[in-house]
Computed example of a mutant assay.
Amino acid sequence: MNASSSDRDDSAADKPPRVLRTAVGLWGALAVFLIVRAAVAWVDVDRLHRRLIEQPGTTPAEASSAVRSLLLGNLAIAVALAAAYAGLAWLIRQRHWWARIAVTVLTVAHLVMILGTMSLSASNGIVAVLALVAWACCWRAESTEWLNGER
């Protein structure tokens, strides 16, 4: 009976604290949100095309090319950020302490990018809240203790 009790204690010690599991879940949610937001932009392609055509001196061909470039660039950035957030969250879950530093750098860079565009939209607000809450959970004392604990 002592062996099974010891096994449970060992598995409990390997399990990340709730706050860190929350952070990992939020990073995953952020990754999904970024992809969904990029996909939704493709649904509204006609509106974007019309707005570009309304610009003085823009031909329909130029507008089509610009729309395609904007949407592909947006998708590429969203996929890269989503992969980075999800991958780093997984590494944190695997108890790689350095992944927490990497996701912090990524979060800061992402938030600076959002602020740099001066786009204070609701979806950017959601991104900021998800990223900041996940980041805060990552750096709580319980998370630090688990990540720095014996492996």
Score class of each variant (00 low, 15 high):
A3V: 08
S4Q: 13
S6V: 06
S11G: 10
S11V: 12
A13F: 09
R18V: 15
L20Q: 01
R21H: 12
T22W: 06
V24P: 00
L26S: 00
W27S: 00
L30P: 00
A31G: 02
L34G: 01
V36Q: 10
A39W: 06
V40C: 07
V40K: 08
W42H: 13
D44C: 10
D46N: 14
R47W: 09
R50S: 13
R50Q: 14
E54G: 12
E54H: 13
Q55S: 13
Q55K: 11
G57N: 05
T59S: 14
A61S: 15
A63P: 01
R68Y: 15
L70I: 15
L71R: 06
L72T: 15
L75S: 14
A76N: 13
V79K: 05
V79M: 11
A82F: 03
A82Y: 02
A82E: 03
Y85W: 04
A86L: 06
L88S: 01
A89H: 00
R93V: 10
H96L: 12
W97M: 07
W97Y: 10
R100Y: 03
I101K: 09
A102V: 05
T104W: 03
L106R: 00
T107N: 03
L111M: 07
M113E: 11
M113H: 11
I114D: 03
S121V: 05
A122V: 07
S123P: 05
G125I: 04
G125R: 03
A128R: 02
A128S: 08
V129Y: 03
A136K: 06
C137R: 01
W139R: 04
W139I: 07
R140P: 00
E142T: 07
S143Y: 01
S143H: 02
E145V: 09
E150P: 08
R151Y: 12
